[in-house]
């Protein structure tokens, strides 16, 4: 029989499941989200009810044993959506609890630590890319809209940066693949889904892409022109260009859309 911890797919749910593993004093065979679980007669199921208190105790325990680094790391790993990440997270928590030595997170010769560090690096790179590649378009309601479809679920990790930077403009960043996003209304930052009113308030927005604010097209044209005229032809190096800006990110980059020839 296989002991399977079944959680609701939320981060708090996963932390609760890890709490229960420790409480049960057993190693889970796997921790699986209800959404992805495929029933099998051989499984011994252990459903978990999400409990915020238990989740917070787990985070407090990790942070106390890792100089405060572990909680953030575990959250980032969770957002990576990698298959089997739940068990990886459990093993990392187990390692931190067992060793009680923050330095263990720097032992890159340990395969679990190394794996987690590599995933974290990928997440951070994706966050950095979204800081770079978000392109706002100003709509008729003075809200700046942007659409992204990142490799990982980084929406919860990028709000702070944009709120600090664009404190005096209202904006929306929407993840079209996961169908949710962020909305900043000049005061507060909140999560929204694709059915939010904010997409109807503007007569157009990048998701509908009808007409935008009067000068929007002009600034896009200026930006495209700038982008093409700063290239030094004698130094063209498309391989390097692609390494920095892989094709899958192009669809939301103004400057990589074909220049309109009718001008």
């Amino acid at each position: 029989m296989v002991s399977l911890y079944l959680y609701d797919g939320s981060f708090d749910g996963l932390l609760t499941a890890i709490f229960e593993c420790f409480a049960d004093r057993r190693q889970p065979q796997d921790i699986v989200s209800q959404d992805t679980y495929q029933a099998s007669l051989l499984d011994e199921l252990r459903p978990v009810t999400t409990d915020i208190n238990k989740a917070e105790r787990v985070i407090a325990g990790i942070d106390a044993r890792s100089d405060g680094r572990g909680g953030e790391l575990v959250y980032q790993l969770f957002l990576s959506e990698q298959p089997g990440i739940e068990l990886r997270i459990y093993r990392l928590v187990h390692l931190l609890m067992r060793r009680n030595d923050p330095g263990i997170l720097d032992n890159f010769a340990d395969p679990d630590v190394l794996y987690c560090a590599q995933i974290q690096k990928m997440i951070r790179r994706e966050v950095h890319r979204m800081h770079a590649f978000v392109r706002f378009q100003k709509a008729t309601n003075d809200v700046f809209y942007a659409v992204i479809s990142p490799d990982f679920n980084v929406i919860p990790l990028i709000g702070d940066h944009f709120q600090r930077r664009y404190a005096d403009q209202s904006w929306v960043i929407f993840d079209s693949a996961r169908y949710y996003g962020l909305f900043y209304d000049l005061n507060d930052l909140s999560f929204i889904d694709g059915d939010s009113d904010i997409f109807q308030q503007a007569s157009s927005n990048p998701i509908g892409r009808a007409e935008l604010e009067g000068q929007e097209d002009q600034y896009q044209t200026l930006w495209k022109q700038y982008f093409s005229s700063v290239t030094i032809q004698e130094r063209r190096n498309i391989k390097l260009h692609l390494r920095h800006m892989p094709r899958r990110y192009w669809k939301y980059l103004v400057e990589k859309q074909v220049v309109d020839r009718k001008r």
């Binding site: 770079a132 130094r235 260009h241 390494r243």
Partner: peptide, 22 residues
């Protein structure tokens, strides 16, 4: 509550076709 900040690490928002940061 103004516009912008420059207290983090630099960000390359785009790359030219010669591979340099914009």
């Amino acid at each position: 509550k103004g516009l912008g900040n420059s207290d983090g690490m630099g960000i390359c928002h785009s790359y030219t076709e010669d591979g340099r940061c914009v």
